Computed example of a mutant assay.
Amino acid sequence: MKEVILALLTGVVVGFLFAMFKLPIPAPPALAGVTGIVGVYLGFKAFQAVAPFLQRIF
C-alpha cells in the first residue's frame, strides 16, 4: 500500500509541475487512453496467472 501512496503522490507532484511550467500533461488526455493502460496491466497480470499452465502444455 505504501508503494501505491508514493506513486500517487509522485504523480500529483509531476502533474503540478507540468501545469506550473505550462507543459502538456504526460498522460493520456482521455478516459479511453487511461482504460487502455489499465487493459495492458490486466493483460500482463492475466498472462502471469496462466503462464505456469502454459509451460506444462508447451
Rank of each mutant, 00 (worst) to 15 (best):
G39Y: 03
V13G: 00
E3W: 13
L54Y: 02
V14W: 04
T35Y: 06
G43F: 15
P24F: 09
G33A: 08
V14M: 04
A51F: 09
A46P: 02
L17C: 07
P52N: 03
G33T: 08
A27I: 11
A49L: 14
L9E: 05
F44V: 13
P24L: 06
I37C: 05
P24R: 10
A30W: 11
L31P: 04
V38A: 15
Q48P: 00
V4A: 13
E3G: 09
P24G: 14
F18P: 00
F16I: 10
G43T: 07
F16Q: 05
F53H: 11
G36K: 07
T35C: 04
V50D: 03
F16C: 12
A46W: 03
A51W: 06
L31Y: 10
P52M: 01
F44S: 10
L6S: 14
G11D: 02
I25Q: 12
L17G: 02
P24E: 15
A32C: 00
F18V: 05
L17A: 11
L17K: 01
P52V: 04
A49T: 12
A51H: 03
K2H: 12
I25R: 04
V40P: 01
M1G: 15
I5F: 08
A32P: 00
A49H: 11
M20P: 00
A49V: 14
